[in-house]
């Protein structure tokens, strides 16, 4: 069931996820489509997340946006991020300029080249922030060497997080702490629980689908949602993922389509990355539990594979 509507205010709105921010000419959603999207969300009881571009919006837009309860997602490079609920740092190179605080959630988009920088960054902000979501943007092209580095980075980050938890600071780093708190899948769910209204006034599975294939719309606010083969965006129609317990995994249906040509089938790389995160979470949780009880309902069993597909012959 749909729960969230992402409204991409501009073609160049910042990416908060795996896809790159578009470097095309800016194109804003029309004020009338914006109003229609808000009305649709109100009638369907959807939470709205507005995704902002770097440049400022006209006042007319700001007042339309203000007419509804919502979440603001803004790039860290925007003129004013003080009212953002979520601040996106679109590349490690922008991290040094961020005015970190405890009121906002941060999303850091970074690739393999700067993975190592995650460790000093977390050391630096661990007492300031409440939550950081890290998106590794080029996971689909990771090599064995990259995975080894990723595991090392998460292991070291896990040690930092463990110390913080033991000292009473429950800082959240999605790649490590989400799995420690989950008892069922918590994925992106684009196309199932989340839909995007794009600047063309049409619904799309997520901004990535819109930017890549703008002609493949799935309805609009006036005529409603029409997703063809909608069941394939649900977990129960994903033969590998429904057997998996890397509950923190993004399960990016856009990356799936890229790598395997099917939205319901993840690549080997996506699974391995998620299982490296799962293993780092397991060790971190184990460390925290040495001192006392923590999230007693959660179990992260030790497993002998890092891609559930390896087991498909036994299903």
């Amino acid at each position: 069931m749909l729960k969230y509507l992402v409204i991409q205010l501009d073609d160049t709105s910042v990416s908060f996820c795996h896809y790159p921010t578009a470097d095309t000419a800016p194109r804003m959603i029309s004020a009338s489509d914006l109003r229609k999207g808000i009305l649709f969300a109100m009638k369907e009881n959807l939470n709205i997340q507005f995704v902002y571009p770097q440049r400022s919006l006209p006042d007319e837009y700001l007042s339309i946006i203000d007419s509804i309860d919502h979440t603001k997602i803004k790039p860290s490079t925007a003129d004013d991020t003080s009212d953002a609920d979520i601040v996106v740092i679109d590349g490690m190179e922008h991290a040094a300029d961020v005015a970190w605080g405890s009121e906002q959630i941060y999303i850091l988009r970074t690739g393999r080249a700067r993975m190592q920088d995650i460790i000093p960054l977390i050391e630096h902000i661990k007492h300031i922030i409440k939550r950081l979501n890290i998106v590794i943007t080029d996971i689909d092209t990771f090599t064995q060497h990259d995975f080894t580095t990723y595991a090392e980075v998460l292991h070291k980050t896990g040690e930092i997080v463990e110390k913080e938890y033991l000292a009473g600071n429950a800082v959240q780093i999605n790649l490590l702490t989400d799995r420690m708190m989950l008892t069922s899948m918590n994925n992106c769910n684009a196309g199932h629980e989340t839909l995007t209204l794009a600047p063309d006034g049409q619904f799309h599975i997520c901004p990535a689908f819109y930017l890549e294939s703008p002609d493949e719309s799935c309805g609009d606010p006036e005529n409603g949602v029409s997703i063809r083969n909608a069941q394939l965006y649900r977990l129960d129609h994903a033969p590998i993922c429904r057997r998996c317990d890397s509950y923190q995994c993004r399960r990016c249906v856009w990356l799936n389509r890229h790598t395997t040509l099917e939205v319901n089938t993840p690549s080997h790389e996506q699974c391995v990355a998620a299982h490296i995160e799962r293993e780092a979470s397991r060790l971190t949780l184990e460390g925290i539990r040495r001192i006392g009880e923590f999230m007693p309902d959660v179990t992260i069993p030790e497993i002998d594979y890092n891609d559930p597909f390896e087991k498909h012959n036994n299903w």
Partner: peptide, 8 residues
């Protein structure tokens, strides 16, 4: 990766 959908 292209084989995974077929094999599952």
């Amino acid at each position: 990766n292209r084989l995974r959908p077929f094999l599952t």
